[in-house]
Amino acid sequence: MKMSKDLMVKLYKNMVRVRALEEKIIECLFAGKIATFYHSGAGQEAPGVALGALLNDDDYLYYQHRSHGINKCVPKGVDPKLIIAEHFGRATGGAGGIAGFHYAKPELGIFGFAGLVAGEITLATGAAIACQMNGRGQVTVSCFGDGATGRGTVHESMLMASAWKLPIIFFCENNMMAQWTHIKLTHPRKEDLSEFAHYYGMPSATVDGQDVIAVYEAVKPAIERARAGEGPSFLEIKTLRYAGHVEGLPDYSVEHQGGMRTPEEVEEMKKRDPIALYQEVLLKKNVATAEEITKMNEEAKAEMEEAMRFAEGSPWPARPDFDKLLYAE
């Protein structure tokens, strides 16, 4: 697939922006500046970045808990300041400080995510119903992990989407770990999760999620198919999670339960780091020089440093009119 230099650079910038924002949030968490939790998505920056580059402002995106959607919402256009300020619980956050790790940006088709894994997939299916009824070629992407496929909501949604040819992409980021439990213990067939799609009669693909170009190339036809009214697709993006389930707790998947993954395996994963792999592509294809790459890395860090200062300098929320938050006029 031919890609413009601008697009290739944008993908890189977004990957390093995503990682820099996550690292900044984790730094603030351990510095005691953040009073909510964080689920690191380090190692799986590529899928959401590729996705973000293919969505329009009026397409709907339902993110999930891993990386608190940073890896998808920042590429779709959400200002990192809103995200970090929400984690700081400040009035300037994406939900006014009431949600902590959730935030909504309705103007960009983003409506938060569910505290219960796989909880937002049915909502995404409803957004796809709206897209279909609007008839303007909008699409919805429902993001979830391998763990979510254990819940009925995924399957009810896929059945409904398939029966009604809804314009939705089921975007499954398979990092093989559901919290601290390896998929091999819960999915006995041990085959690709994209196999689920066959039963629901929708096209599917299994993609290397460490390769941002490969993800981009797989998502593009699925989105085009949905925009053309041809129905849903299922994409399994095989990716890697470096961290434990949640920051601040040991990675039980390494240290306990018989060691579902060894520390060596986790270190091995980092050799397939999506940012490092993509740097090689950019250099090899003469899209960017080493100096330009370093500059982009520094710009991303500076942007997130500034976003943190914005959050720290923002006011705490006053007690709002809770009735107005609870019920609309």
Partner: peptide, 8 residues
């Protein structure tokens, strides 16, 4: 609605 700061 409540959990998203009244934005929806």
């Amino acid at each position: 609605r409540f959990a998203n700061g009244g934005k929806v």
